[in-house]
Design a protein around this nucleic acid. Sequence first.
DNA 1: CCACCGTCCTGGCTGC
DNA 2: TGCAGCCAGGACGGTG
Length: 270
Amino acid sequence: MPELPDVEAMRRYLLGRGLVGRKFTGAVLDWPKAVKGSSLEDLVLGILHKHVQDVARRAKFLMLRLDDGQSLVFHMRMTGSLLLERSATPRHPMTRNFFPLDDDWYLLFVDPRKLGTVQLVADEALLVGNLGPEPLDESFTPEVLMQRLERRKAPVKALLCDQNVIAGIGNIYADEILFSATVHPLTPGGTLTPKQGELMHAATVEILTQAIDKLEDLVSKGGPPTESAEGLGTLKVPRKANAACTKCGEPIQRIIVRSRGTYFCPKCQT
DNA sequence: CCACCGTCCTGGCTGC
DNA sequence: TGCAGCCAGGACGGTG
């Protein structure tokens, strides 16, 4: 499931494949429910003959900035991904919507579970204005993290997944961060010590950066950045109850936090 | 501020 | 082995 590293790798993949400068020549919306915020017609007419000026990311949103100031904003949700292919290349079977570009290229929105969204916005801030800090931004410090968790009673696991607390982290990397920082997922956010804040901050930066590097390596070898976090082989927490903890060998525990499966080591994380 | 619920979806896994 | 059934969960909106 795409989290910050996956979306960032997707951004770099699209840049590397030369999306910037290309022009939309149409839209084939086989799954129209993915379109949010406007009518299908407004989206199609809105992007027609517009050039992509930049590919940006904020949290898990991927935005294609067009030459008229509007942005075509994708959210991958659970299973979405974008591919840039020659029109002659057989389309991925799970392609839900696709966008013909000039020079016979296609931008494919692949999404097996049909939960992803796309919308054309004049003002990105309406979508991303309330999001928490970008964890890989220089301005993200242990102090900023602690301040975001201050006085919060919710489990730190839930807060890490809350896009308005900190942007871009999802279920899997939240578990990884807490494991690395040896913090129990049910710890109320406001009770974390400065030391724990530092550990979590360092773990966040390291884990996200490492995942991006790994994905970018895959992309540089020619593949699209669609490898799942599990498939990357960088995860330290087995996502299976009773599997052996990679640090101490004790059985990994599975609990549900805010209806999300949460894996942690009861011995290492306190 | 917090908890919980329903909604969206179907590939792939579990269990009989 | 085959097949039915159900789980996975990010964001959002609503309720209490």
